[in-house]
Design a protein around this nucleic acid. Structure first.
Lengths: 350, 350
DNA sequence: GTGAAAGCGCTAACAA
DNA sequence: TTGTTAGCGCTTTCAC
């Protein structure tokens, strides 16, 4: 193992000073042509690369951004990461990923580990446990220390920062409206507990759609899945809860699910009960991921455009980083548009 | 925005020296009890956190590891990352993710960006384009510079480093044997081009199984999907190639696919052709991901235990990092065990 | 045209 | 018990 060459090593080897080497490598006009040549040749030969850490210390910025998400085994989050990565890399930034695993403590630890100078700013989607506890001190403290944060998807209204979201209410309303227009009479929703912002908002959209069509609200038709159940471990419990829901609501002919896993599982349960999709039951999911595309039958879903969300997050963050001196205290909330991707789990009954 | 407190700031504020503060914060016995108290109280009050970058520069290690994978929107890779993350975090390491997007150039850039002191070591699964070009100079150079690398899944035999793989040949043989035992007579394989190591090896396992059962090889039954087709973009092309394959091989009654996307797509094509699964066609995939689990019917697959692979990668790398002085030039190749997860796309015809 | 010195934030050997 | 100093690798100002 050859040791990595540093300016100092090169300087000694060539019998010049460190600063000469530094300048030569930057093509400074202060340095004589042949010295430059010599230095550059030597540097190339030994594959010199400036030490990023030293630069970071000097410049007080690391050119890397930290992304903290609840789970990486989740198609939506990975598309967002792809988007972040793409934009960040284009701007010369690196991306460091931390997983909270939906746990408050791990979220705090991750933030702590990275906020100590390792990264210039965060992009985060808040863990369910954190939302449930409503304890956001780690986030506000980080912001107070001058480390900017961009929140996406699962955001916290009270915290002042840039945000990238989807118009959950309007989008859900649109989806449910589609079911109604298609002739569904008894539409159920499979959502999360209310502390998860997106679940709460999507439920609100569902209710607005019903209301708009003068359909009375029926609490039996609203299923709020217990916390953490969309982790891959307890699929059986998820299925059990949905099976019970089906049993309690016999004439269900439409389902709106707030994520694709819930939608897919509902379809599985329906199939076991001999219910035909879309003839007897129409289904729409949220988040257009691989699961939806490859489901049988292919699932009609709302596309959140995760990749674009990621790009927006990175853009917002990097823009703020690059003009950090200006102390801009006005925050943006970007609302990414959604699309209803019609596939085979819905169809007009007319 | 308060500026982040440094030792220097604290020292000045408390009118002691920087080293006193440093030692006090580390509970050094050299420092007097009340000085310690004072310093600690102050540090807590202003939420002091040591600057990681400075520590990295000092210690010549960053306690972060770089993971470079072809695609993050891929269940297998995300499970591996989860495993890496878990083990790394337990050991106090951070994980930084780079995506090569199956491109040689992006792989090189990623390696370059990070090899300059930002990370202590790499975990990498090689991009298809790199495998096709057979140009590995960026990898060998990195190793030569003293930055250890662990390869997983898509590895390069010629490169000396730690590796974590699955016994692709034996595992594939087992899967195909299962099909044969189940009574399949005409078994096809859907694989990748040969330069992708895993595709090549899995095809070899397929052939060995046939051979073992005295079934003659038939090249028509071997489909090698064109490069990059498992990226989500060109699903139609994938489907087209598989449809053609079906047309050319009428009595196909068994399919072994080298990843779950190929398997799922084959099932889709079969369904369109009115072929019953598993009655008329049995299917086994590789990589037990979400797609397989939620497919209809649920797909029999080989579980690669990605999470464990990730843990092994991290363990191998960190072990090497922590004893880097010893200059251990013996490399390990960990072969992770696989399991055949029997679901509903296979069944004995007896 | 080249080099010395200071400094980014921190630690540790050594002095006081 | 506390402080001074040097140094991690680099940039940059200011002398020479």
């Amino acid at each position: 193992m050859k040791q990595k060459p540093t300016l100092k090593v090169i300087a000694k080897e060539l019998d010049v000073s460190v600063s000469t080497v530094s300048k030569a490598l930057k093509d400074s006009k202060e340095i004589g042509a042949k010295t430059k040549e010599r230095v550059k040749a030597f540097a190339k030969l030994y594959n010199y690369r400036p030490n990023n850490i030293a630069l970071s210390l000097k410049n007080r910025k690391t050119k890397t951004i930290g992304v903290i998400i609840p789970e990486i085994v989740h198609h939506f989050f990975t598309t967002v990461i792809s988007g972040i990565e793409k934009y960040a890399n284009e701007q010369g930034y690196n991306v460091i990923v931390g997983l909270s695993n939906e746990s408050f403590d791990k979220e705090v630890i991750n933030l702590d580990m990275l906020a100590n100078g390792s990264i210039d700013g965060f992009i985060i989607s808040v863990a369910k446990e954190t939302l449930a506890k409503e304890d956001f001190h780690h986030i506000t403290e980080t912001i107070d220390q001058g480390v900017p944060i961009v929140m996406f998807d699962r955001v916290v209204d009270e915290i002042l920062c840039d945000k990238v979201i989807v118009d959950d209410v309007a989008t859900s309303k649109k989806a449910v409206q589609q079911l109604i227009s298609n002739g569904c009479k008894k539409i159920g929703i499979i959502s999360t507990k209310d502390y998860v912002s997106v679940g709460r908002l999507r439920t609100r959209g569902y209710l607005e759609a019903l209301n708009h069509n003068h359909i009375p609200k029926n609490d039996d038709l609203i299923l709020k899945i217990d916390d953490k159940l969309n982790s891959n471990d307890n699929l059986e419990q998820l299925e059990a809860q949905i099976a019970t829901f089906f049993k309690q609501n016999k004439q269900l002919d439409g389902i709106f699910a707030v994520n694709e896993l819930y939608a897919i599982t509902a379809m599985k349960v329906a199939r076991k009960n001999g219910i035909q999709i879309p003839e007897q039951l129409q289904v729409i999911g949220f988040t257009d991921g691989v699961l939806s595309k490859h489901a049988y039958p292919p699932l009609t879903t709302i596309s959140q455009h995760g990749f674009e969300m990621g790009e927006d997050c990175a853009r917002l963050l990097i823009e703020r980083l690059e003009k950090q001196d200006e102390e801009d205290e006005t925050y943006q909330t970007v609302v990414v548009k959604t699309d209803l991707v019609l596939r085979e789990t819905t169809k007009s009954k007319s």
